[in-house]
Amino acid sequence: MTENQDNVIELHDVTKVYRMGEIEVNALAGVSLTIRRGELTAIMGPSGSGKSTIMNIIGCLDVPTSGKYILDGEDVGMLSDDRLAGIRNRKVGFVFQTYNLLPRLSALTNVELPLQYGKGGGRKDRSFEALSKVGLADRVHHKPVELSGGQQQRVGIARALVKDPAILLADEPTGNLDTASSQEIMWIIQELNRQSGITVVIVTHEHDIAAHAARVVTMLDGKVLDDTRQEPVLVPEPGII
């Protein structure tokens, strides 16, 4: 088990046990998974398959019960809450199904949020740059309610990108969007992966979305059922961004 610089995510025999009163639930029953830098991976599986749990562990929102997790060369398996917060801040960019923007703040300030919890200046410039990347340079002062669902998700992606994370972790990123907006979001994600070489992990239950990934990991009952590399379906460039 040597650490490989090409590997961004290394899970070694990771288990997760939840206690629900008297019952113990084995959400993950020994998962080993390696994701290389620059890969676009989709994690699929029905509810209860453990895909949310593995996403929480990959995103450092939760820690494994046993096993080893190395993220970007750093062993993050058993860190304290505050250390994990620091790792999330530096290495993980989250994109949520429900966007999870703060309603009171402008797009620009929302994107600035991860920068507030880390070091470094030039926050306004950096968040403006991130918003430009997702084509929202002319919407920076809009509040979330003044934006469409697709635009809100693009703000979410800009927020995830602003710290140049090691991985972009998207949880059902198109789950609340119509087909056109979904295409738009997937195009952006694919472009970021192809142009900037960002490692992307998408958790989804939609085969259409998984088809855009170069690798599909299917989970069932807390284990990896299938791990396939495929030729990704390229999203056509949308007319208007």
Binding site: A85, P114, Y117
Partner: peptide, 8 residues
């Protein structure tokens, strides 16, 4: 959200 973004 703030914690996910790295708030301690």
């Amino acid at each position: 959200i703030r914690k996910a973004m790295g708030a301690k």
